[in-house]
Design a protein around this nucleic acid. Structure first.
Lengths: 350, 350
DNA sequence: CTCCCAAACTGGAACGTTCCAGTTATTTTG
DNA sequence: CAAAATAACTGGAACGTTCCAGTTTGGGAG
């Protein structure tokens, strides 16, 4: 605030009008940019605003408008870098379009999720991008969202929900990375991590199964291990897998976080990952590059998914008649060291 | 929304009142919980709300109230897990207090930062927690914040700003980790990363210098290397350091991200980190644990800082007379493998 | 000079809520 | 049993904006 201005804690359009010697309607005209105002009048009004430290009151404006320029972004786990990157993509696009993102972290709690969604609707959000918490049901969502708020479900698809969605191609990605291990000669391959109640786990495991079936390789049911999708979960599940009498030669993990836990467990057992055992992940978070050996994984472009989600939601907000659409993003294989492909190439050549 | 309810896209308090056979004032009473309403009337009103799919309009309420229950959280870099963790801490405390966080990522852009802060004020945020973008000046901030919005500056302290602040003890932390290297016998120690214009860099470098001076070890000016606080920055700065005729035996890095880049550069040169050279970081992000060798670093408890920041801001919002306060959080040494302490212990014993 | 038209501006009624100042119904109290 | 107190409820005036329907101003055409 420029010096000399009294810090009146609530400057309104009317005070601006009085000070500039015009009516509040004229001030509103320059604020919204609608109608025609003489340039010098506009200038004078803007200057007065500056002097008095005027702050536009969007709440009051929305009361008439219904056009709120707010969208909500509900994340299930901000501590996972994957979702942080997703959020960055969303934010970039929204910002460009003059929207502002109300962002909240549910930490996988469905009650917090509905609280947060309610809050957003109460604040007049025109749309919500939701990365649903585990155990979110279609009914809950129907209650927590309404006809005036466009809903887009991202990352975790939610069967039975009539909303747009943006998800990576989990089935294809998982099949792709499984085929890679099969090509390297592995036959005893475990699937590790995630809980079977999770839709994403189901999709990824489906891709795994399909690739195995297509290659004519039988899946040992004992090599299908569930665990929470955390590093600790991966660590203990992998420890059990390694204690098996006939342990796997390769492990397809639910995601990078689990894979990193699994790598730690293998190292603890004295195994060299990429030589004695192959471990692969899913997501391609920045950590996948930094662990040693670097993790072979599936890149799903979190930022790109976020951008796409935001764009699709904005489309539905501005064009309310538009139908709900779905987008399935690409999932690409990134070969690094943890699968032993490099080692393998050497052996094959030698 | 329960079946049978018409999806009227704007249900107001008045329609609820009509349907329940009471006045809008009574409905307002049950909404706010003020005043006394007969339990059965309250029940009836709540039921009607449910049936008609009523959504409370906070914008309209704030028009009278000025108590908005919104606080803004402005982050300079959401892709850095440190800030994601900080955000989680902030959110947890706000949620508890019934507040909702408007969160935005500025990606180190000062123009985006002022846009975002303006938006938040326009939406009636009662306070803003700001992790300032690089190059933020005190003057800009004075313009972008106002008397009606409490400001708290976090993580990066900003000289000359009259606001509360929450920062880790950069000086002490840096001194602590430098002392650790000195105790291990290192004398040629480099300081690597960050730009000297950054206040955080200044603080951390000060701690480094003080520890060196106290130990009576001279600092070689050639071993003070600046770079952007990114992994790539750390990589190239470390590459230069290693090309020096008389290279350092230990490197204190600006933060973990830089340290990880530096480790990569050392490995590329064929050096075994923790044996041939010591590298340490600052922040203790989750990556520090996962790299190999695990990084010795300074833990500053990002979540705790976030919680503290939120609590302090809420205090200032609810008690407007409260003066601006400052909190300096602890910075603790976490010894892992990258400094060779384990190796050193073996040698000393043998 | 008069008329007309556009440009520039204005007053007041919304918007959905809260809250003050009542008004009625019900209970307590002396 | 009347009076007072309380509980339960109500009407209307805010709050800060937008927008409709005017009104004034200033020029140009006839």
């Amino acid at each position: 605030m420029p010096q000399g201005a009294q810090p009146r804690d609530k400057v309104t359009i009317i005070e601006i009008a009085d000070a500039a010697g015009v009516s509040k309607s004229t001030v509103s005209l320059v604020l919204t940019g609608r109608g025609s105002v003489k340039p010098e009048t506009r200038e004078r009004i803007l200057q007065v605003m500056d002097e008095l430290g005027y702050v536009y009151n969007r709440g009051a404006a929305n009361l008439r408008n219904t056009q709120s320029k707010i969208v909500g972004l509900v994340l299930n786990d901000l501590s996972n870098p994957f979702f942080a990157e997703f959020a960055i993509g969303v934010e970039t696009v929204l910002q460009m379009a003059g929207y502002v993102a109300f962002m909240a972290n549910t930490a996988e709690s469905v009650v917090r999720q509905s609280q947060v969604m309610r809050m957003m609707r109460e604040h007049g959000a025109g749309g919500i991008i939701l990365c649903p918490a585990l155990d979110t049901t279609a009914e809950e969502l129907a209650l927590a969202s309404g006809p005036e708020t466009a809903l887009l479900v991202a990352i975790r698809r939610l069967p039975g929900v009539a909303a747009s969605s943006v998800v990576p191609d989990n089935v294809a990605g998982s099949a792709r990375i499984t085929r890679h291990l099969l090509n390297l000669g592995h036959r005893r391959i475990a699937y590790l991590g995630g809980m079977s109640s999770m839709v994403v786990r189901q999709d990824r495991h489906q891709g795994f199964s399909e690739a195995m079936a297509k290659a004519g390789v039988a899946i040992d049911p004992g090599l299908n291990l569930e665990c929470m999708p955390t590093r600790d979960g991966g660590f203990s599940a992998m420890s059990s897998a390694l204690a098996l009498p006939n342990r796997p030669t390769a492990v397809v993990c639910y995601n990078d976080v689990v894979a990193i836990g699994a790598m730690l467990a293998a190292a603890r057992r004295g195994l060299v990952v990429g030589r004695d055992i192959a471990i692969v992940g899913f997501d391609d978070t920045s950590e996948a590059r930094h662990v040693s050996p670097a993790l072979t994984t599936i890149a799903v472009d979190a930022v790109g998914l976020g951008e796409r989600a935001a764009a699709m939601l904005l489309e539905r907000i501005t064009n309310r008649a538009a139908p709900a659409t779905s987008h399935v993003g690409p999932a690409e294989l990134v070969i690094r060291e943890s699968c032993g492909a490099y080692q393998h190439a050497l052996t094959a050549a030698g």
